[in-house]
Write a protein that binds this DNA or RNA. Structure first.
Lengths: 134, 134
DNA sequence: AAACAAGTTTACGTTAACGTAAAGCTGCGA
DNA sequence: TCGCAGCTTTACGTTAACGTAAACTTGTTT
């Protein structure tokens, strides 16, 4: 009997609304079981939620995330065709992530130089209008 | 007289629609001048478009990108208060980017192991059902 | 028994970022 | 002068990812 979670437990742990979690289920990203009408989330569901949120932070749509989940699940029983499809999807994603890495590096550089420019402007201000002792 | 661009030149260079470019102007991300009623884009506009698209790939909203542009412009003539605000915004962005870097690294690892699992499944298939000579 | 907390379904509303006509000006090569 | 390519404005439509409200069940605390 591995651990299970209620919807509000997951909601507060990952700081999302229960509405979102139910929506993700609607989009077939999560598949909680039920006790009566109440949803019960397994640790697999928890992992999926975590992955979903991570994917979102990276700009993936829910549809894309779902696609990756499905491909992953099909891998075990996949035909050769399916497996090759999966591999190509994977390398697709890899390329996108590498592009994103580059983008981040560029923006970080720009932020660096912006910060320097900012600090210089501050210094110039302090020369003309020096600080009140202290 | 530095170089200028038409809207369709920029559109094809960056592979976006003219509709998007006009929309970005509407959101005050670009400020092209006019000759008659026709828009003329400076190289500054071009840079801004490039930065905009990069920001989008990183999941920034147009409003956020605009905010950064405005802060950047205000830096030259900024008061001490403005400059400190800018610095805090910058470090905010930096933190977000670092989080994204971590996310990307995690997903890359997951994709790696998915790829390995995929290749193993393929090998197992080929053992049971070996390739037709060649 | 009453009320409260936590869950549920159903369904309409909202925002961002464009897409997609429709209708009109403008220079210019045949 | 015609027509076309490229630009313009205006405006309504669309999709994703939820927000928000209403009305209901279910368990448990007072």
């Amino acid at each position: 009997m591995s651990k299970t979670y209620s919807i509000s437990e997951l909601a507060s742990e990952f700081d999302v609304t229960t509405r979102s979690i139910r929506f993700y289920e609607d989009q077939e990203l999560l598949h909680p079981s039920r006790r009566g009408q109440t949803r019960i989330y397994s640790s697999k569901d928890r992992v999926r939620l975590k992955l979903t949120l991570r994917g979102k932070r990276l700009g993936f749509s829910l549809a894309e995330i779902r696609e990756l989940f499905e491909l992953w699940d099909e891998t075990r029983s996949g035909s050769e065709k399916q497996l090759h499809l999966m591999l190509s999807k994977i390398s697709e994603r890899k390329a996108a992530l590498e592009q994103q890495m580059k983008d981040i590096t560029m923006v970080q550089l720009e932020l660096e130089s912006a910060e320097i420019r900012c600090r210089q402007a501050l210094e110039e201000l302090n020369e003309k209008h020096p600080a009140t002792s202290k």
